[in-house]
Design a protein around this nucleic acid. Structure first.
Lengths: 200, 200
DNA sequence: TAGATTGTTAATCGATTAACAATC
DNA sequence: TAGATTGTTAATCGATTAACAATC
């Protein structure tokens, strides 16, 4: 596979393109143009063209890209070769919402378990007691840990995940996690996102 | 109040500063320096200084910023003069998670109701049937609409919110909403956020 | 052929960082 | 005073957009 360098900002758009292709119901045409994608998604058309050139580079002037091929190429990049299994720690409302969120599969992520320290939340629907996390990580390939615990416990859960060889953390708590080199943290601060709406 | 121009990227950091100040338990000192904030939050120190200069401009060389004053200034900007009431449409797991998420109040947003078309979800805990939305919007000041319905219904719910004079939409569905001029949409694509983690 | 669309190079824009004088 | 820290101006960096030749 050709080695390509995808920027963070471009990477954020790839799932959007893929989903767009998956839900569009235009069976009439085998091709799709960057112009149409850009218009529908309200993105700059050069931007889209650049993204698609990066991942596909097989566009035909005048007609556009073969839809099926583009879709497969996006899936190839998103559903990367490594297994993308994720676990959630913190089976509160947010954790549960994420566990049953149905947009992750499309981009190659699968949430295979949730953990919580509250016995009331433990059932047999893939929610386990936190004490079983170590064992679970030994028996399963887990590449992403999603932290939805309250912020008092976020750092210690983060440490626990790292101790169990998880190198990618999706952090929904509002504190800054301290992690060693080689561990990637993506902070998801919902309040900060909402605050942007109050501008203007 | 002095007119200041806050960029989107800076606006996203303000809630982080405010939360940092709110949860830090260093009672010993009345002052906080941008250097310390930058280190703790893992941000560039010039970046923090610039943000703080923009909103406060009252830093004292050698000592830093008066913590209490900085906090009040952040609250002043975030809890803007207008009432920031929000409603949620779609009382599924994600909608419910957002309704009970406790980080919004800090930045001046209050979720005052959820709506759903499924009678099973209607209870008296601020979840109403969608048919009551029009009346609710007449009787309450609602500035933000949060869309957590499935994507087939997202556009029509968006239209409904706009028809009820809501000018700010926080869209959790994976489709691009069409809105008239003057309506601001912030898309929150969780799958796209997660995809970024798979880079490297 | 004419025209729509691709892919690329150069220009622009915005955000972050570097450098540094001012100051308590 | 000396040194840490502020605030600002200039430089850099990265992402988006404009311009345009190539092409089907």
């Amino acid at each position: 596979m050709k080695k390509i360098n995808i920027s963070n900002s471009a990477m954020k758009r790839l799932p959007i393109y893929l989903h767009y292709l998956n839900v569009m119901h235009d069976y009439n045409c085998k091709y799709i143009s960057s112009t149409k994608i850009a218009n529908d998604l309200k993105l700059g058309e050069v931007l889209v063209r650049k993204d698609l050139a990066l991942i596909s580079g097989k566009g035909k002037p005048k007609v556009g890209y073969l839809k099926q091929e583009l879709k497969e190429r996006l899936e190839e990049i998103l559903n990367t070769s490594t297994i993308n299994n994720a676990i959630i720690v913190g089976a509160g409302k947010l954790g549960q919402a994420l566990q049953f969120f149905d947009g992750f599969e499309e981009i190659g992520f699968k949430i295979i378990a949730s953990f919580d320290n509250n016995d009331d939340k433990i059932d047999n629907h893939y929610i386990y007691h936190i004490d079983h996390l170590i064992e679970f990580c030994k028996n399963n390939v887990v590449s992403v840990g999603i932290i939805t615990v309250n912020e008092e416990n976020a750092q210690s859960i983060c440490d626990l995940l790292i101790a169990n060889h998880i190198k990618k953390i999706w952090n929904f708590s509002a504190i800054q996690l301290n992690v060693p080199n080689g561990v990637k943290v993506k902070n998801e601060n919902l309040a900060a996102s909402l605050a942007v709406l109050s501008l203007n």
